[in-house]
C-alpha cells in the first residue's frame, strides 16, 4: 500500500510537469462523453421511451457504467498499455523487482486525465437523481456502490485479459477494444434493448449485464426480486479464469521471452 501511494505521488508529480496538456486532455475526455450524452438526449427528445425505459433510466445506466469504466481506465491503464511494456523491456525490469507483478504494473501508469470522463458521469448521475428520485433504501445505496465497484473490477479484469494476450501475441490485439471501448459506448442503454442474444452474452460470457442491467432493474423498481440485486458478485466468477490465465501467461513469457 505504501508503495502504491508512492506511485500515485510520482504520477501526480509527472502530471504537474505538463499542466496544460493534462488539463486539455481531461477536457477532451469530458467533451467526448458529452457528445454521447447529447446523442442520448436528442434521441429522447424524439422518443419518449425505448423498450419501456425512460431517458432518466438510460442515463442512470450510462452514468454508472461510465464511472466504472473511467475508474478502471484510470487505475488499470498499465494493463491497457501492456504491449508497449513488453516491447520496451519495462516488463523485464518489473520481473527484476521484489514486489508483486500486478502491483508494479498498476503503479507503472495511472491515467489521471480520465477525471474528465468521471466528471461527466457524475454530472449525469446527479442530474438523474434530481430529476427522478429513486426511492432510496440502504440496500439500494449499497447496490449502487456494488454496481460501480463491480463494474470497475470487470473492466479491470478485461484489461488484464487483454494484457495477458500480449504475452502470446507480443503486440496489442486491437479487436479486443470491442470488449472495452465498445462496451463503454453501448453500455449507455440498458443492455436488454440490444436483444436477447446480446443480453445472454453479457450475462454468461462477459458479465456486463450483472453490473448494469440486472441491478438496475431492482433499483428502478422494475422488479422486486432482491436476488437480482446481488448479480454484481458474478464479476468475481469472471475474475477467476482471468487470474489463472494471467499466471499462465507469465509462465509462458518466462519460458519464451520476447
Amino acid at each position: 500500500m505504501k508503495l502504491y501511494k508512492r506511485y500515485l505521488l510520482l504520477h501526480i508529480q509527472t502530471e504537474l510537469e505538463y499542466k496544460t496538456s493534462f488539463l486539455l486532455t481531461a477536457i477532451g475526455q469530458f467533451l467526448v462523453s458529452c457528445n454521447v450524452f447529447i446523442g442520448i438526449y436528442f434521441m429522447f427528445q424524439r422518443f419518449s421511451t425505448v423498450k419501456g425505459y425512460s431517458f432518466e433510466e438510460c442515463l442512470f445506466c450510462f452514468s454508472l457504467f461510465l464511472l466504472s469504466f473511467s475508474l478502471a481506465e484510470m487505475f488499470f491503464r498499465g494493463f491497457d498499455q501492456f504491449a508497449s511494456m513488453i516491447s520496451n523491456g519495462e516488463f523485464d525490469r518489473i520481473l527484476l523487482r521484489p514486489k508483486s507483478l500486478v502491483l508494479q504494473v498498476l503503479g507503472s501508469k495511472i491515467e489521471f486525465t480520465r477525471i474528465g470522463r468521471m466528471l461527466q458521469a457524475l454530472v449525469m448521475f446527479v442530474y438523474v437523481l434530481l430529476r427522478q428520485p429513486i426511492e432510496w433504501t440502504i440496500l439500494k445505496a449499497c447496490i449502487t456502490v456494488f454496481m460501480i465497484l463491480g463494474g470497475t473490477v470487470l473492466f479491470a479484469a478485461l484489461f488484464v485479459l487483454y494484457a495477458t494476450i500480449c504475452f502470446f501475441t507480443l503486440e496489442g490485439l486491437e479487436i479486443f477494444n470491442i470488449f472495452t471501448d465498445g462496451a463503454r459506448e453501448f453500455g449507455k442503454y440498458p443492455l436488454a434493448i440490444y436483444g436477447k442474444n446480446i443480453l445472454l452474452f453479457s450475462t454468461f460470457l462477459i458479465p456486463y449485464a450483472c453490473i448494469q442491467y440486472y441491478p438496475f432493474l431492482y433499483l428502478t423498481d422494475h422488479t422486486t426480486n432482491v436476488m437480482v440485486a446481488f448479480t454484481p458478485i458474478a464479476v468475481l466468477l469472471f475474475c477467476i479464469p482471468v487470474h489463472l490465465f494471467w499466471n499462465y501467461g507469465i509462465k509462458h513469457y518466462q519460458s519464451k521471452g520476447s
Binding site: 434521441m43 424524439r46 422518443f47 419518449s48 421511451t49 425505448v50 423498450k51 419501456g52 490485439l173 486491437e174 479487436i175 477494444n177 470491442i178 465498445g182 459506448e185 453501448f186 442503454y189 434493448i193 440490444y194 436483444g195 446480446i198
Partner: peptide, 27 residues
Amino acid sequence: AGIMTQFVWGFLEIKMFQAFYQTEPQS
C-alpha cells in the same frame, strides 16, 4: 482488426436503432 471492430460496432448500432424503431415507429 478495424474491419472486425466496425462490424460489431455497426451491428450494435443497428440493434440500438432497432430498439427505438420497435418502440415508436411513428417517431
